[in-house]
Structures are given as structure tokens and as C-alpha cells.
């Protein structure tokens, strides 16, 4: 009889693993900690996790978002190399592993919440445009981003016109006249031209719990 039960052991083990109540979903081990350290509530964190699961399983269902899945989620097609998507992905990838876990995803998206601090949005956008991460934005970097944007949208401007736009930008932004834009100058520019931060706010994040209601079936807490 005992031998018979021995045979069932592997079966019982896998069933137990399946229903292991404290087997937290990967990346959502501590939604309350994430809620305390971001602008999201616990329910919003859990709803965001539903979005994360969708994105992270699009190509390889491994509970992590690689760059291909990141790009696919944004544009629904596999775009060719994109300077900006690379920069955004790198800023999400705070652990520099080349892949995004849920915690990185949630913390980065928190900055895009309408309720996030403007200073956090200014910091993120500065990092985004500081392509070489030198602590300032150089003229050459601005030109590279302008040319990239024009190429992406199929717009054509002569080099003179591009140089003119960049001259005008540095006239306004480079108040210390050292040929580069530092974080303070960037903040001053953005405060004078708030539209420069328009990409830094996603209204969708305000109703994430209604967009991804399925989180309630996995909710671990009663978030009133």
C-alpha cells in the first residue's frame, strides 16, 4: 500500500506547488511596499500587474519584459531600432539587466502618473534627453534627436533650418552660455514651456483599475 502512495508523491507535489497559497505571482511579492513608494494605490499596483503580465507574455512568457515586448506593447508592430525607445527602456531598466521586472515597470510608470511630482517628470525627461548620460544635454545630442524625429515622421528640413531651431533652443535654454544644457537650465526651460513635458503624463494611469478590472480576482488586499 505504501509503495502505491510513493508513486503518487510527484503528482501531489506538483498539485501542491500549483495551489501553493503563498506562491506570490512573480514581481508582485509586495504590492503594499510598491504602493508606499510610488503614487499608485495597492489596487492600482495590482491592476498595473495585469498590464505587465499581458506585455511580458507577448513574445516569451517569462514574467519579464524584454525590449522586443516593450516595443511591441507601444507600437503593436516590431519597429526597427529606435533611439527613443532604447532611451526610455534604459530608464525603465534601473537594474541595467536588459530586461524589466514588474517593480522596475511600476516605479518608472509612476513618474508618468498625473499625480506624480513635476520634479520627477523633469528629472526623467532630462535623463531621457541626456543621451550620453554626462549630466548635461549637448548641442550634438539635441541635433541627433531632432534628426531622428524628422526621419521617423518622414519630415524633411534643411540642415540650415535644423541648425536655426537648435540655435534658438540654446539661446533660450543655455542661460549659462557654456554650450550645454544642465539640469537647472532644463528645469527653467520646462517651467517656462510646460508643453515640453506633455509626454511625461499618461491620463490612462488614472483609471488603470477600470481598464484592467481583472486584478480583483487576484487581489491580495482590501484596498479601500
Amino acid at each position: 500500500m505504501l509503495q502505491c502512495l510513493e508513486g503518487f508523491k510527484p503528482l501531489f507535489a506538483s498539485i501542491l506547488r500549483c495551489c501553493d497559497l503563498n506562491n506570490q505571482p512573480r514581481g508582485l511579492e509586495d504590492p503594499e511596499l510598491l504602493a508606499r513608494e510610488t503614487v499608485f494605490s495597492v489596487s492600482e499596483i495590482e491592476a498595473l500587474y495585469e498590464l505587465f503580465k499581458r506585455i511580458s507574455s507577448a513574445v516569451i512568457d517569462d514574467g519579464l519584459i524584454n525590449k522586443e515586448e516593450f516595443q511591441l506593447a507601444l507600437f503593436k508592430i516590431n519597429k526597427k531600432e529606435s533611439l527613443f525607445v532604447d532611451r526610455v527602456f534604459d530608464l525603465f531598466d534601473t537594474k541595467h539587466s536588459g530586461i524589466l521586472g514588474f517593480e522596475e515597470f511600476a516605479r518608472a510608470l509612476s513618474v508618468f502618473h498625473p499625480n506624480a511630482l513635476v520634479d520627477d517628470k523633469i528629472e526623467f525627461s532630462f535623463q531621457l534627453y541626456d543621451l550620453k548620460q554626462q549630466g548635461f544635454i549637448e548641442r550634438q545630442e539635441v541635433k541627433q534627436m531632432v534628426v531622428t524625429t524628422l526621419a521617423e515622421s518622414g519630415m524633411n528640413l534643411s540642415d540650415d533650418v535644423i541648425e536655426n531651431i537648435i540655435n534658438k533652443t540654446f539661446e533660450q535654454a543655455d542661460t549659462k552660455h557654456d554650450g550645454k544644457i544642465d539640469k537647472e537650465e532644463w528645469k527653467n526651460l520646462v517651467l517656462r514651456h510646460p508643453s515640453l513635458l506633455k509626454n511625461m503624463t499618461l491620463q490612462y494611469l488614472k483609471d488603470i483599475t477600470t481598464t484592467f478590472p481583472s486584478f480583483v480576482f487576484h487581489s491580495q488586499v482590501d484596498d479601500t
Partner: peptide, 30 residues
Amino acid sequence: QRNSGPPILINAFQLIGMSSCLDLSGFFEK
């Protein structure tokens, strides 16, 4: 005399901000 020329971009970052690659709302669109 009416100024009918194209809108003058105030600076390069406004142009860069038009890049679709910087618009993350795609995450939420099916």
C-alpha cells in the same frame, strides 16, 4: 497684415516631443 506662415516652433524639444516613440500611451491601447 495676417500672419499666415506655419507655426514657428519655439524650440527643438517641442519638435522632439512630437516623436511617437516618446508617447507611452500605446501600453494601454489594445
